[in-house]
Design a protein around this nucleic acid. Sequence first.
DNA 1: TTATTACCTATAAATTCTATAGGCGATAAA
DNA 2: TTTATCGCCTATAGAATTTATAGGTAATAA
Lengths: 153, 153
Amino acid sequence: MITKKTKYALKALSYLATRPAGELVLISELAKEESVPRKFLEAILVALRKGGVLKSKIGKGGGYMLALPADKISIGKIVSILEGGFALVECLNDNVKAVCDECGDPACCGTRLVMIDVKKAIDSVFEATSLADMVERSSAAQKLKQNVVDYCI
Amino acid sequence: MITKKTKYALKALSYLATRPAGELVLISELAKEESVPRKFLEAILVALRKGGVLKSKIGKGGGYMLALPADKISIGKIVSILEGGFALVECLNDNVKAVCDECGDPACCGTRLVMIDVKKAIDSVFEATSLADMVERSSAAQKLKQNVVDYCI
DNA sequence: TTATTACCTATAAATTCTATAGGCGATAAA
DNA sequence: TTTATCGCCTATAGAATTTATAGGTAATAA
C-alpha cells in the first residue's frame, strides 16, 4: 500500500506537469489546488527535489518546477523516493542490506523468492509509466466522462 | 509492503505444506518451529481458517492442517486474507467501496488508473504461484546451496 | 533593507502493527 | 463423568510508523 506521502506527491507532480515548462509554482498554490496540508507537502517536495525530480528557487518569484520533462519521470522513480522502494519485503529494496528478522537465510527464503518476481512485475509497470502518461490517462478519462455527460444532456 | 502477519502466515503454511497430508499440527509446534509468537500466530491461523485455507480440530489430538492441497492455494489468496487485498491503493481492494480522501473522482484519478495496471501485474504473479511452488523453490534453493557447500569442501 | 519564499528541526497527534493475557468451549481419553 | 488437551475469543498494552503542525533560518529579488 502506498502512503499519503506518495499520493500527495503524485498529485503535486501532476499539477506541475500541466503547467508551462519552466514556470515556478508556489508550495502554497500546490497545497491549495491539490488539497494537501501545506507543511506536509513541504517535506514531500524537498524529498522530490533531493531525488532529482524537482527543482526549486528560493525567494521572491521562487517556487517549484519539474527538473525533467514529465515523460522522463517514471512513476517508479517517484514511488521509490517517497516509499524507499516498492518491494513487498524490505530485503528487496535498494540500499537495504539488512535481512528480515523472520528470515533465516535470504537465499532460501520462499517468501523472498516469490517477492522477487512480484517486484519485477511491479517494476515493469512503474518503469513503463511516466508522469506524462499518468496525466494523459487522467485527462482522457475526464474528457470521456464529459462526453458521456454531454451525450446524456 | 507486506506485514509480519503475512510473513508469519507464509512460514506457518510452508511448514504445514511439508507435513504429510491430513496430519494435524499444534499451534505450539508451528510457533516453535517457525519462531513466531504463539498468541500472534493464533490470530493469524484463525484468519486463514476463516479464509478457507486451513482446517482445525479442537481438543486432544487437535491442531491445524491445510484445507486444500498446497498446489491449490495461491500466494495471492494468502496475502489477500491477511492484508485485505494487495492493491497499492485502498480503493482497488476487494469489498472496498470507499474512495480515498485524496481522490476527487475515482474514474479520473491518475494514481488509481496507474495502480490498476500495477494490481494486475501483481495479481498475475500471485495467482500463478502456489504455496507448493513457493515451498519447492525454497527447498530447491536450499539444495543448491548445500551442493555448493559440498563442492567447496 | 524588506518582503518573499523555500528549507530545516523538532514534536505532537493519529493510526496501524505487533504482541500478550486470560478465560471459554469443544474434544478425546481415562 | 471427569480430566487434560487444545483451539477460539475478547480485550488490551506496547511499539512503530504515518500524518500533521509549529516556528525559526537562510536565500533571493526588488
